[in-house]
């Protein structure tokens, strides 16, 4: 089987790492936003739901 792997340059590897970190941070921020936002919007009402 021939070598068909992609070899990244240093610049491309650094850029990829930078994008990955930013994406991870954005996802974490989104989770926190939904959690805190739900808590602020509904408060204790979040526990009141039809069974």
């Amino acid at each position: 089987m021939s070598n068909d792997r992609v070899t990244l340059t240093d610049k491309q590897r650094k850029a990829q790492r930078s994008r990955s970190i930013a994406l991870a941070l954005a996802l974490a921020a989104f989770v926190i936003l939904v959690y805190v936002g739900t808590w602020a919007k509904l408060g204790a009402n979040i526990l009141i739901r039809p069974m």
């Binding site: 990244l8 610049k11 491309q12 850029a15 930078s18 994008r19 970190i21 930013a22």
Partner: peptide, 12 residues
């Protein structure tokens, strides 16, 4: 060839 991005988070 495949165009791979050299864009950093700062570019976004």
């Amino acid at each position: 060839s495949i165009g791979l991005s050299e864009a950093n988070a700062s570019d976004y």
